[in-house]
Design a binder for these strands. Structure first.
Lengths: 196, 196, 196, 196
DNA sequence: TATGAATGAGCATTCATTCAT
DNA sequence: CATGAATGAATGCTCATTCAT
């Protein structure tokens, strides 16, 4: 009756879905939502444009899924680092180090979060990101406050410091689009923003 | 016939062109090139969409002009600050102060430079920006080197420091899109990146 | 400033809208909603397909407007005949005569009402028609009841007689699609359904 | 190998084919050709859409087969009634009674013949129906002429009477789509069209 | 100039059809 | 036989651009 088991189908579907998400990340992060064509994503994924719709019912769902995946990746990273052992400063060093490394390897993840802020994206998508962003900002702010309490981070409005740190990381990600070869500033330069 | 009226026409035209550019900046900076409609820009400028084509022959020219105006504004700012009297550090303080003030008043100027990096924009437009960007980076790098020589700026690759400074400024501009109400970090936090 | 007055624009728009409706009636009545292409309607109206969307925002609105126009035409006819002087039978003769004449001249009007019953049409469109249909059926039923009271119409459930009369008229309209040359049955044959 | 099993396979295939035809009739009659999706038919038949193509090579063949089956059903009915014993009028009563009963039980059969008239269907399919329709009309016309000769049917163009009778039956079938609950008019109301 | 009607290229989306399993 | 993943032609709709007025 059924030549392929339902499980097999699920596996194939899952795998493709992941591949599609990766392709979408590459295309969307470089072009933004409006300028990216479904055909571009399909080509990047090596499938026909029609097949994209077997996995995501519309361009916007695909974009939303792509955003969500990237954003959740960052949220997971921040949450896991926050739970690490060591001093608050150790954690901040670890986090920034991993963010910069991640940006070097897969700058798309960070770029996605930049594109979504523009009104190119639909309000629904922006809201998804906003929610996750709150988590990240919240976790990061706590880490910065911990550092301030430990005297390792300079005093000052922790919310503003949080924004400043996020800003420099996103700004560097953008710079990689323009000058992929340019050297990223060393970790301690980035950390000077926080250094007591 | 009447040289005065021709001149006046020119004035009117120039004024309109400037108004159009302002409208375009608002729309393009919020939506990016692809998602922005000529009709959006026309509506923002309070004219009919057909009239836009009297001033710019195509959407891309308008985008290019918008980019160019923003970029030249930054270039002019950096160049003028570089020529200011005082110590190198005074100049860097002045520059960052003005950049942050500008971002507060007209965040569109900085956002434009973010959008153009995406492949949403045509290569031609990107090249225009790249050229101006080289000027800005060059001027800024010189200022930073001056500061290093004066012992006011921390040692290290001046190119990397330049990128880091630009990154944080652009990152903060993006943040204003998401949280227009969020406090910008104080000037000295931004300057910590450079501080010896 | 404005080379054409707003009034002129309105006139042109109204005229085109009517022409478009006529073209849509021809195409939709022959093909149904799903099989009719916007390009077909545009071609029939002698305009580009893009222009259709200046007048109706989507295919379905155009279909709905087309349906509504036809249905309202029938409702107006029935209402006006109902108000005519003479005996109830005179009015029924007048109504059937005009319906058959209308079907000869513009069979599209009746065919539209047939297509909409299929699930090809969206529920919203069907509801519009259903409402108007209730009016028509109501008016017609009253006319039949009047005839029964005057002894001119055969006794029996007036609702069923109403449906039977509508049925034969619609059935004849369909037949004109298949055999446009076939003779329509004489008026008195149709009226036999009601004849006392 | 085993002739029995091949035969059984045929039986199974035939049975499925019939089930598919029934499902297709339901779907096509409600939506028309263009709006009906193969997936709809497959779902109605409880099979996968791919399997449909094992029985019919394309959507149009399935539609044609569906039409043909319905049309042939009517042709067979008319032919069998025409051969019945009794007076011409008896036969007409029998025919109309069975047509109305059939419409009550399986309105799809009649609705199919309505849809095919629209240009939604391909010319080939329309021709199939046209041919069968000629048979039905021919048989019916003969029955009406017999009735006229026997003085049981009113005089007048028998072709026009035939169309009128078909019209009312089809019109009533359409009405069942809109108001499935509405009472069908009694048989003798329909027959008034012919009554001498 | 200024307007908005008009055009058509371009892209999202659907769905008939094919085919590996 | 049966399934559903895969393809791509077809079609709705958008919007940059042109142009009559």
């Amino acid at each position: 009756m059924c030549p392929r088991s339902a499980e097999q189908f699920e596996q194939i579907k899952d795998e493709r879905r992941r591949a599609l998400l990766r392709a979408a990340r590459v295309v969307f992060s470089r072009k933004g939502f409006a300028a990216a064509k479904i055909a571009d994503v399909a080509a990047q994924a090596g499938i026909s444009h029609g097949l994209v719709y077997h996995y995501y019912p519309e361009k916007e769902s695909l974009f939303a899924a792509t955003i969500e995946a990237s954003a959740e990746g960052w949220a997971a990273l921040v949450a896991s680092v926050r739970a690490q052992a060591g001093t608050p400063w150790d954690r901040l060093v670890s986090l920034c180090g991993q963010m910069i490394a991640g940006m070097r390897e897969e700058p798309e993840h960070l770029l996605m979060t930049v594109h979504v802020y523009s009104e190119d994206a639909s309000p629904g998508v922006r809201d998804v990101l906003r929610r996750i962003r709150q988590q990240v900002l919240g976790d990061l702010e706590v880490m910065i406050q911990d550092g301030q309490r430990a005297g390792q981070v300079a005093p000052g409005d922790p919310a503003a410091l949080t924004r400043a740190l996020i800003a420099i990381v996103q700004g560097l990600a953008i710079n990689r689009l323009v000058e992929p070869e340019a050297a990223l500033p060393p970790l301690d330069v980035v950390l000077r923003i926080l250094r007591a």
